[in-house]
Structures are given as structure tokens and as C-alpha cells.
Design a protein around this nucleic acid. Structure first.
Lengths: 214, 214
DNA sequence: GCCGGATTTTGAACAGCGTTCACGACAGGA
DNA sequence: TCCTGTCGTGAACGCTGTTCAAAATCCGGC
């Protein structure tokens, strides 16, 4: 086995072990010495394939993004690429379903999900990480295009991020015992209320806008 | 000077120093040894007035909440206690102003504000901390009572927290370089769009509701 | 004023962390 | 077999929050 192959195998094993540690006990349970013992390598070996533990965490987070992408892709939306011409109500329904699937993912994968945000970057995330984010946001942009056909691509992308941020805030603080801890049905009700209101408010706004500047 | 008085003075000095450290370099810059040197006490003395650094951070965070309360109280709202009978549009305007004041506070006090959420609790926050939160949410509940007079107190309180969570998500991720970093005017535009949409959507929902079940 | 028990303050020591790097093991050509 | 360059190693470094035996201080009784 070549040196390169062994490095690659070590890399994969470390990501596996790191993911398991995070799943089990959260980001705080990720210890370099535990990883080395689990994988069966020397402590210093970790730093031959990763510059530091942050890079390793980022790789685990990429896996989490992929995991979530599978979940969100399974959500049946009326505004998918091939669909006909869905109305605003269908688009709002899509947004609600997407938001609820985000909540479900957060509840089913609490530690993995927390690691995505709990982790504070030293520098900017690498390109391959940001690219994955961009892909995920396309799911939100599709229904948004129905609600606000007046928006250009960049504006729509920005609004999609804002919608996600709002949903994330509701889920994040709703599950956080520091502010409040809501049961799953109550939290889902709040998400449905808020996202529906957002969707209706946005369409109303578009109508207002088109009347003022036709 | 009695022992009690000295302890109290040390306590205040430690909170001062901790606040200064957080303001300067964020939560990560809070070091027990630095605090002791700054205040001029022994390292162990810290643990005679605080069980651990988390408790000290909590005291700093309470100061931050008070600081924010002063900022939010200065916001002129049409739905203040003594006001007449403001309409839904005025209430939505109030919500937008409150949200923007939240954004302004976050931008003007970045490290203090981050410490509020970055800090993960070991146990539940003490009562005196939660009480301050409850007081702050009253500012949101007032406009909300205009938009949704059909809601009972508990439901309104819950929705107020949801509205805050959504706003917090937009501000938090909007200022986070991990997802995106938005300029102050762009972020404010997104907040205005989202909160306005939320407000209009909520009133529409109330109207729908009252039509369906009059 | 002085003593002795109680109380308070102290900072060296401890356990743990991420990260490094001089060293030894090892592979392959001479 | 020896030499050389590459690679993996784990003890060591510097840092962290927290503890606790010991020192210093206080204070009422003689």
C-alpha cells in the first residue's frame, strides 16, 4: 500500500471517529487523544493529515451537510424543477415543509447539527464547504421564485438565506434550554405559523410592489 | 470594612474586568489568570465569589441584557402602554423598529452580544437571569397584541419568542462570516422585509381565522 | 498586650487540553 | 552491509480552569 493510500485511509478513519465522538457527546467530546486511541494511531499522526482539529471538524460538518441534503431532497415539493405552474399557496406549503424538515433533522441529529453552528471558524471556510451551502439554498429558492417572480437571482438568493436564517433562529432557540425548550409539536406549530406568515407577507408585498411600479 | 463588603467589592471588580475582557476580545479572551492580575487578587480568590467562570460570564451577560433593555426602551413605539388605539400597520412598524434596534445593538456591541449566545450553559440559568428575559419580551408582546388580539397571554408570549428567534436568526447568521457577512444596510433591508412580511402574514392569518370561526 | 482557635486568602500543584518536533524506525539504492 | 532520506512517533511544551494544604489574618478572652 502506498503512502498516499495509507494517508487517505487514516483520514477517513479519523473523520469516522470524529463523527462518532460528536454524535455521542457533541463537539466538546472531541479530544485528540481519544481519536488517536480509537483509530489506533499516534497522537501526532492526526496532524499529518489535518492541519488542526478545526479542519477535522469541518470535514465532519461537510458530512452533516450531505446528510441533510439527502433529507431535504426527500421532501416532496410542488415547485420542483419539472413541476407545472404551482400557485403561491403551494409554494408556501413547500417552504413550510422544508422548514419542518429542517426542524426534524435538528431533532434527530442534535449533536451533529449543533456542531455546524457551535463551531467558530478561525478563518473563512474553504470553497468546497461554501459550495455545499449554495447547493442547499437552491431548495429554498425554488418556492421563492413563485412567491416573488419580480426578484432577480441575486436578490432571491439573499432572501432565501434570510428565510433560512429566520427558520434556523426559531429552531435553534426553540431547542435551546437557555431561552426556552419547546416540545416538538409546539415548535412545529410555531414554525408553521411563522413560515406561513412570512410566505403570505412576501406575496402581499410583491403585489403591493407590482401595483406601485408596474 | 467587613468581610462581606470586601467580597462584594471583589465581585464587582471581577465583573468589571470580565466585561472589559469580553468587550475587547470576546468570550475566548476571558482567562482566570488575566482576571486575577487585572483585579489584583489571587487566582483562587475568584472562586471564593463565583463557583466557576461560567457564573461570572452569566453576570456579565446580565449586564448586557440591561444594556440592551436601555436601548430597546429608547425605541419609540406606537403600541406603548399609554398609547391610543394604533392599527396593524403601526404595530408592524413597531416590530420592525424593535428588530432594527436589535440589529444595531448587535453591531455596536458585537462581543458582548455574541457572549449571550456563544456561551453554552452547564445547567439551567438561574431565575434572576430568566426574569430579565421575560421583561424584554414584553416589548414585543405589545405590538403583537394589536396584530393578534385573538391570542391568549401564553400563546402571545410564545409567538413573541418565535418572532424574536426569527429576528435573532437573521441578525446572527447575517453577521456571521461562516454563512454570509452582510453590510449593515443590506442586513437592515432584509430585516425590514422579513419582519414586515411576518407582521402582515400574521394579521392576514388572524383575519382568515376570524372569518372562518366568527 | 498577647495568645490560640477560627476564618480568610493564597498560589503552587493538578488534571486536562491542542499542538509540536527531535528522535528512532524503516525502506531502498549503493 | 551500510548509508541516506523519508515517515511515524509520543514525550514534552505551553496553556487552560479548578483545587486545597498551608500561610496569613482576624478577633474574642484572658
Amino acid at each position: 500500500m502506498s503512502t498516499e493510500e495509507r494517508r487517505e485511509q487514516l483520514r477517513a478513519a479519523l473523520i469516522d471517529a470524529a463523527e462518532a465522538a460528536i454524535v455521542q457527546g457533541g463537539l466538546g467530546a472531541l479530544k485528540a487523544r481519544d481519536l488517536a486511541r480509537e483509530v489506533g494511531c499516534a497522537l501526532g499522526a492526526i496532524y499529518t493529515v489535518f492541519p488542526d482539529l478545526d479542519a477535522l471538524i469541518l470535514s465532519v460538518n461537510l458530512r452533516t451537510l450531505h446528510l441533510f441534503e439527502r433529507a431535504i431532497t426527500a421532501v416532496r415539493t410542488a415547485t420542483a424543477e419539472g413541476g407545472g405552474a404551482p400557485g403561491p399557496e403551494a409554494a408556501i406549503g413547500d417552504l413550510v415543509r422544508l422548514a419542518v424538515s429542517y426542524q426534524r433533522f435538528a431533532i434527530e441529529n442534535p449533536t451533529r447539527w449543533r456542531a455546524l453552528f457551535q463551531h467558530r471558524m478561525a478563518a473563512m471556510p474553504p470553497d468546497w464547504y461554501m459550495r455545499e451551502q449554495v447547493r442547499l439554498f437552491r431548495h429554498i429558492e425554488a418556492p421563492l421564485a413563485v412567491l416573488r417572480p419580480d426578484l432577480a437571482g441575486a436578490e432571491r438568493a439573499l432572501l432565501a438565506r434570510t428565510l433560512f436564517s429566520a427558520t434556523h433562529g426559531i429552531v435553534s432557540l426553540g431547542l435551546d434550554e437557555k431561552l426556552m425548550t419547546l416540545s416538538e409539536p409546539v415548535l412545529r406549530g410555531q414554525i408553521e405559523t411563522a413560515v406561513t406568515a412570512l410566505g403570505r407577507g412576501l406575496t402581499a408585498n410583491a403585489a403591493t410592489h407590482s401595483e406601485e411600479t408596474p
